[in-house]
Design a binder for these strands. Structure first.
Length: 301
DNA sequence: AACCTCGGCAACCGCCGACCA
DNA sequence: CTGGTCGGCGGTTGCCGAGGT
């Protein structure tokens, strides 16, 4: 509509589409480990990937990013999604910003596949059990949701209908107390000490585990070289633990047992800044943030 | 055992706003 | 102010595995 002759994000001719291969993942990881992702459009070329920038960005954000929390959603998270969706509508990125480690895509999928149905069935149940007198409370709660639901689909009032602020207060405590589940051990590191071993060192090890294929070109640096480059690449991600995690995720056993530190500072800083901006304009985030900001280990909520 | 159906999830597509020259 | 580029978002698609027949 409002397009101004925008060029396609990439020349799609000759580019890979569909699922990402392990090699592509490793290329992307190795590149971002070393250079960060200044320019998504240029990244694939520089990283030697036959993908468009958007595809790289999506892959990184939704799957390869070190601070991704994988695994099943907890009950608290599900409840949070339901409540936030009630307040915000289909603002998946905003909802995601309140759920540390979850991506908008993941939440969106979760909503579309599970929560929507669950909510519908709950609604049906509650309609069957509750009497019309309840309509009073539902109209009061909708005052809060209405302010946020004028974008996207306007949902009918679900059951619950408690004061959202009360809900978030309780939820916040739960999420703060137990943000790290069994699948989150690796990110439960309190101190993000910059370890000496860069992914550049891990990557070759990792690659060697893979069958066949010449991945030597992926190896950006090794040993002391890596340490020097680490210094240069200040502020950029230097984590390697998530590479191990990836190994596990991808079913490659033999992950290193070392418990290297994680440098997520820049990511956390960005998230915190984002949150502060949201706080100014978004009462929901503001509320949510208020309760969490002092103690949230992620700094993003 | 083979086929079919369905659900879940990763990835793609198109649009929009911010930013910059 | 205009036009171009880029990153980001939300909706949608399509693949793949699980379960059912």
């Amino acid at each position: 509509m409002g397009r101004r002759g925008r060029a396609p994000c990439c020349d799609k001719v000759g580019l890979n589409k569909g699922s990402w291969s392990l090699e592509e993942d490793m290329r992307l990881i190795a590149y971002i480990e070393k250079h960060g992702h200044g320019n998504w459009r240029a990244l694939p070329k520089l990283a030697g990937l036959l993908r468009c920038g958007k595809s790289c960005r999506l892959r990184w954000i939704n799957y390869l990013r070190p601070d991704i929390k994988r695994g099943n959603f907890t009950k608290e998270e599900e409840d949070a999604i339901i409540e936030l969706h009630r307040l915000l509508g289909n603002k998946w990125s905003k909802i995601a910003s309140c759920l540390p480690g979850r991506t908008d895509n993941e939440i969106k999928n979760m909503w579309n596949t599970h929560l929507k149905k669950r909510l519908a069935s709950r609604e049906r149940k509650s309609l069957a059990t509750q009497k019309p007198e309840d309509s009073q409370s539902s109209s009061s709660s909708s005052a809060a949701s209405r302010s946020c639901s004028d974008h996207g689909e306007s949902k009918s009032d679900e059951e619950g209908n408690q004061d959202p602020s009360l809900y978030f207060t309780d939820l916040s405590v739960e999420m703060i107390e137990a943000p790290i589940g069994p699948d989150m051990d690796m990110w439960g590191v309190a101190e993000y000490d910059t370890h000496q071993e860069e992914a550049a060192v891990i990557v070759p090890e990792f690659l060697s585990m893979m069958e066949g294929g010449d991945y030597s070109s992926l190896i950006v640096s090794t040993g002391e070289e890596a340490m020097e480059e680490e210094e240069e690449a200040k502020g950029e991600g230097k984590s390697s633990e998530w590479v191990e995690y990836l190994e596990k995720e991808l079913g490659l056993s033999g992950a290193s047992e070392e418990n290297d530190g994680i440098n997520q500072e820049s990511l956390m800083r960005d998230a915190a800044e984002q949150q502060m901006e949201m706080e100014e304009e978004d009462p929901v985030s503001s509320y949510f943030h208020k309760d969490l900001v002092s103690t949230c280990p992620f700094g993003s909520c």
